[in-house]
Design a protein around this nucleic acid. Structure first.
Length: 426
DNA sequence: TCTGGGGTCCTAGGACCC
DNA sequence: TCTGGGGTCCTAGGACCC
């Protein structure tokens, strides 16, 4: 059996940990640049605040109902996420957990006797809540896809389930699938859902489970669709992922706070994103062999129209590297090549690709490598920045004024990572 | 006026090789 | 008259996830 442990409206819950006065009140958290609503509590949901909907469209509703609004505070969420995952690791063992996202983990419960699944899940829930202040929902089933189905229903029917649902019999599985609209199933997105409903009259999980496998192979994206159907039948096809596996690409991309027109600003932004990406790269002990820069601009003619064009350019590196300085060195001329005077730029990004393990790097005879020195420097900078969960030390190329930076007007304090922002009890 | 960021997997098709 | 077969690698793009 497999479980998915999912933090309830994670970002909002993080805010509530330090704002107990908001416990029963509606809360929302906004995306970068304060653009969209990316987390909302049940109270906000019941008021009709849409998930992933633009902030400005909900502004009246929010004002009228006194909803608490926060800009995203990734320093805080990242730190609390780590605490939740560490707690899970101590409970189930490091080798039995796959951290799937900032607020979700899959847990392998293969060795747990069936009759203990319910009580053990309850234990996980209670301990995580007590140690971190974060509430979780848990779905347990024979496969990942079914665990997700269980998880969704556990939240939906909180009052009966207490946020825990174990699907350990065929009857329970069928019943759960009948209650699950096809678009709510993990692996069925907007397009497939539309096709399933409109073209083939398939509306819920139970109907989907009963389609012909070959048919699924043809109509739902090849082997992906086939796996999905089997998982719904209770045949595991998607195993827990190896946590040590390297990412194949690492991206850092962002919208600007306001349109950018100067090359210098673009280069600062790209230097900043490159530093960030390089840091992630070093964290997995990787080195990149290619770098891809993209700029997204407004359509040039006329005034504002949301019809962006994206241009990108890719460059192979002479030798794999994870050194920020070198990567910035590759990136800067690329920005210059892409840049067009007169365009308004809205967004930019860096993608590091063809990642290889760091230890596999061969020496390059054209370049003297001051051996451990650069590595040591990078490690020192990483350690300082990591302890503050922020880029306290940066490259000058990243700029000082940074007038392209995103908006974050409503950010809460970094309670757990800055001394001067510690929570005060008076 | 205003709509996020960071990933994964898979397939098709073209270039190229012997 | 009749002109192979089997591979690999790469890129672009589509679908999905949180």
């Amino acid at each position: 059996m497999k479980a998915i442990v999912d933090c309830n409206c994670f970002y909002c819950s993080c805010e509530r940990v330090f704002r107990p006065d908001l416990l029963k009140k509606p809360v929302v958290v906004l995306s970068n640049n304060d653009g969209c609503i990316i987390s909302r509590t049940d109270e906000a949901k019941n008021l009709g605040v849409g998930m992933a909907s633009p902030y400005y469209q909900n502004r009246d509703l929010i004002k009228k109902n006194d909803v608490a609004v926060f800009s995203s505070n990734y320093n805080l969420y990242g730190d609390l996420s780590m605490r939740v995952m560490d707690t899970l690791r101590t409970l189930v063992g490091e080798q039995n957990i796959e951290v799937y996202s900032v607020d979700e983990s899959f847990v392998d419960l293969a060795s747990m006797p069936k009759e203990k699944l319910q009580s053990f899940s309850k234990k996980i829930k209670d301990v995580v809540e007590q140690w971190t202040g974060i509430r979780v929902s848990i779905g347990v089933a024979p496969t990942k896809v079914l665990a997700k189905v269980a998880n969704r229903l556990s939240k939906k029917n909180k009052d009966q389930t207490g946020c825990i649902l174990v699907l350990d019999t065929e009857e329970k599985i069928i019943d759960a699938l009948k209650q699950t609209p096809v678009e709510e199933i993990w692996g069925v997105g907007y397009r497939y859902a539309k096709k399933l409903k409109e073209t083939w009259g398939i509306y819920d999980g139970f109907q989907l489970r009963n389609v012909n496998e070959e048919w699924a192979g043809v109509n739902l994206g090849g082997v992906v669709g086939l796996r999905l159907i089997r998982e719904l039948k209770g045949i595991p096809c998607i195993e827990l992922k190896d946590p040590l596996k390297q990412k194949k690409m690492i991206a850092t991309t962002r919208m600007f706070g306001k349109p950018v027109t100067e090359l210098k600003d673009l280069q600062e932004a790209i230097a900043t994103y490159t530093s960030r990406a390089a840091e992630k790269l070093r964290r997995q002990h990787g080195a990149a062999t290619s770098i891809d820069i993209f700029l997204m601009s407004n359509n040039y003619k006329g005034h504002y129209q949301y019809n962006p064009q994206t241009r990108h350019i890719n460059s192979k590196l002479l030798q794999p590297t994870s050194h920020t300085n070198e990567l910035i060195g590759y990136a800067m001329p690329l920005v210059e090549k892409l840049f067009h005077r007169g365009y308004k730029y809205l967004k930019a990004g860096v993608i590091l690709g063809d990642i290889v393990p760091e230890f596999s790097i061969q020496g390059n005879i054209f370049k003297a490598d001051p051996a451990g020195k650069r590595r040591e420097l990078m490690e020192t900078i990483d350690n300082i920045n990591f302890s503050m969960r922020d880029d306290v030390i940066k490259y000058l190329a990243s700029g000082l004024k940074r007038n392209w930076k995103m908006r974050q007007d409503l950010r809460s304090k970094r309670y757990t990572t800055r001394w001067e922002e510690l929570y005060r009890v008076s």
